[in-house]
Amino acid sequence: MAAALGACFNHLSRESSDIERLANFYQEIFGLERIESPKFDFKVIWLRQSPSFCLHLIERDPQTKLPEGPWSATDDSLADPTKLFRGHHLCFDVANFDSFLQTLKEKGIETHERTQPNGKTKQVFFFDPDGNGLEVTSRDS
């Protein structure tokens, strides 16, 4: 049905109480480019990775009652990257997985690494500053 409609993925949004911090993280770690954002009654930052993928960071509504991310939840185990691979996450792939992994370690980002049973696909799981789950896989797999 989606193919018949010509539907394609447009963007993913993340709400945050500090969108500048979150934007800096995604720009530094993934090289996303800040692009012009429309004007709203709240702060927004739009980041683009390619013509087909954008990340919209939206200022958190102070009236919301939902937790901001795993680190604001009451269960500490939710912030454990070893449990992330079955959970909610956004995935990127990179050409030089080992170099990317070294960069995460140099920045002190806690990670969980694994290799798929095929022995080829390397994966690393970690969190952004708001506790949103991230996965990065090796592109050559």
Rank of each mutant, 00 (worst) to 15 (best):
L5E: 11
L5F: 12
C8W: 12
N10K: 12
L12T: 13
L12G: 08
D18V: 00
L22G: 02
L22D: 01
A23N: 05
N24G: 09
F25V: 04
E33R: 09
E33L: 08
R34D: 04
E36F: 11
K39G: 08
K39Q: 14
D41M: 10
K43R: 13
V44M: 11
V44Q: 11
V44F: 07
R48K: 10
P51Q: 12
S52Q: 14
C54H: 13
L55G: 06
H56Y: 04
L57I: 05
I58K: 10
R60Q: 09
R60I: 00
D61A: 08
P62A: 09
Q63W: 12
T64N: 12
T64L: 13
P70L: 08
W71K: 12
T74W: 14
D75I: 06
D76C: 10
D76M: 11
S77N: 10
S77E: 09
L78W: 11
L78E: 00
A79Y: 04
A79W: 02
P81Q: 05
R86F: 11
R86C: 10
R86D: 08
D93L: 05
N96D: 15
F100V: 01
Q102W: 03
T103I: 09
L104Q: 02
L104H: 00
K107L: 01
E113K: 07
R114T: 13
R114K: 15
T115H: 05
P117E: 07
P117V: 00
P117K: 03
P117N: 03
G119F: 00
T121W: 09
V124K: 04
V124W: 04
F126M: 04
G131E: 03
L134V: 09
V136E: 04
S138D: 13
R139P: 00
D140Q: 15
S141P: 05
S141D: 15
